[in-house]
């Protein structure tokens, strides 16, 4: 409903694009205006509003999603390039077993204030911790450098990521031992 698409008002059929892709493990077949970005699609067509628009130019990271295993600013990904892609948003990631320690650590370390950057920050943290089991400070700072936060000074966020890494490793060890 938000940003009711061009389809109703302005656009001809030739201006629409058909896409067939996966979002949070659900296959989606959609016809959307060809100038839509991935962010428009997830927010306005799929009503997944966890990803935010902070700049619309790929500069702030508030719309970060995981696309085919890599971080991507959803606001820069055009609809026409989406078919066959595998997308994960905060709404899908938060349900994953290995995301729980991250969410818990963000709560326990008060790693959120206004919260506008937070879903993107959690997605980037999740991606980081799938890449590195025990990231170094340098890897954490690099891994989150595409996500701007104006409230926290990043201190509590970095603490939370470290704590989550520790917890994930404990869980993995327990899993192996069991």
């Amino acid at each position: 409903m938000p940003n009711k698409s061009f389809s109703a008002a302005n656009l001809e059929l030739k201006d629409m694009v058909d896409i067939d892709f996966t979002v949070n493990s659900v296959r989606r077949v959609l016809r959307v205006p060809c100038n839509y970005t991935l962010l428009d699609i997830i927010r306005y067509e799929l009503k997944l509003t966890g990803a935010k628009e902070g700049c619309g130019m790929g500069e702030c990271g508030a719309c970060t999603v995981i696309m085919d295993g890599a971080l991507a600013p959803a606001c820069l990904v055009l609809a026409t390039t989406l078919s066959g892609r595998d997308i994960w948003t905060i709404e899908g990631i938060k349900e994953k077993e290995d995301a729980k320690p991250i969410i818990d650590a963000f709560i326990a370390r008060t790693a959120t204030q206004c919260g506008f950057c937070t879903p993107g920050m959690v997605v980037a943290s999740y991606h980081l911790l799938t890449k590195y089991e025990s990231p170094t400070d340098e890897q954490i700072l690099e891994g989150l450098s595409g996500n701007l936060c104006r409230c926290t000074g990043y201190v509590k966020i970095v603490e939370a990521v470290k704590e989550a890494a520790k917890e994930l490793n404990t869980l993995k060890k327990e899993g192996r031992d069991a």
């Binding site: 938000p2 935010k52 938060k94 969410i103 963000f106 709560i107 008060t110 959120t112 506008f116 937070t118």
Partner: peptide, 15 residues
């Protein structure tokens, strides 16, 4: 208000 902000369910005006 931590959880709703962290898991993306908090509703900002553009939502």
């Amino acid at each position: 208000d931590a959880l709703e902000k962290i898991d993306g369910s908090a509703r900002y005006v553009d939502d």
